[in-house]
C-alpha cells in the first residue's frame, strides 16, 4: 500500500489540531469548523493513496478543506443567495459559545473571528504559521497580491478593534 497507512494515520492524527484551527479560520463558526474537519478527514483518508509522503501533509489537508468549504459556500449562494455567516453574527456565536471572553487571548480571538470573510485564514497561515504569501495564496487559491492586501487589512482592522476595546 502506498503510502503506508499507519504513517498516514499518524500524520493525520498529528495534524488534527492545526487542521481544526485552520477550519475555524475559514468558517469562523465552531460547529461548522468541526463539520469541515470531519469532511476533510474523510476525504483525506479516501485520497490517502494520492498523497505523496515526501510532501508535508498539512498544506494538502488545508487545500482539501478549503476546497470543500469553497464548494459549500458556492452551494449556499446558489440556494439562498447568501454567503457565509456575517461577521457580526460570527462574533456573536463565538461569544455565545464562550460566555464572557475574560482572557486577552479570548478577546483577540473574538476579534479575529469577527474579521470579514477571508482575512482570518490569511492571518493564520502567514502570521502564525509562517507560510509565505505564495504558499498561502496556493492553499487559499487566491492571488498573492490578495494575500498581501488581506494581511494588511487584517492587521489594520485588528489594531483598530483591539484599541477600541481597550479604550
Amino acid at each position: 500500500m502506498q503510502p503506508d497507512a499507519t504513517d498516514f494515520q499518524a500524520e493525520l492524527l498529528a495534524s488534527l489540531p492545526r487542521l481544526r484551527r485552520f477550519a475555524l479560520s475559514l468558517t469562523r463558526h465552531p460547529s461548522e469548523a468541526d463539520d469541515l474537519v470531519q469532511m476533510t478527514c474523510e476525504r483525506a483518508i479516501t485520497n490517502a493513496p494520492k498523497w505523496n509522503p515526501e510532501q508535508p501533509l498539512l498544506p494538502w489537508l488545508y487545500t482539501m478543506g478549503r476546497n470543500l468549504w469553497t464548494s459549500e459556500m458556492r452551494k449556499r449562494q446558489v440556494r439562498t443567495g447568501e454567503g457565509t455567516v456575517p461577521a457580526e453574527e460570527a462574533a456573536e456565536l463565538v461569544s455565545h459559545a464562550g460566555g464572557e471572553e475574560n482572557t486577552r487571548a479570548g478577546q483577540v480571538m473574538a476579534q479575529i473571528m469577527a474579521l470579514p470573510e477571508g482575512l482570518s485564514s490569511v492571518l493564520l497561515l502567514v502570521s502564525v504559521e509562517g507560510h509565505s504569501y505564495a504558499e498561502a495564496a496556493a492553499i487559499l487559491d487566491i492571488p498573492a497580491g490578495t494575500v498581501m492586501s488581506r494581511m494588511s487589512a487584517a492587521r489594520a482592522r485588528l489594531r483598530a478593534a483591539l484599541a477600541g476595546e481597550a479604550a
Partner: peptide
C-alpha cells in the same frame, strides 16, 4: 499585535 494573534491562535490548539 502579531505576537498576540499567535497566542490567541495557539490557544486553540490546546
Amino acid at each position: 499585535l502579531d505576537d498576540e494573534i499567535g497566542l490567541a491562535f495557539d490557544a486553540l490548539l490546546d
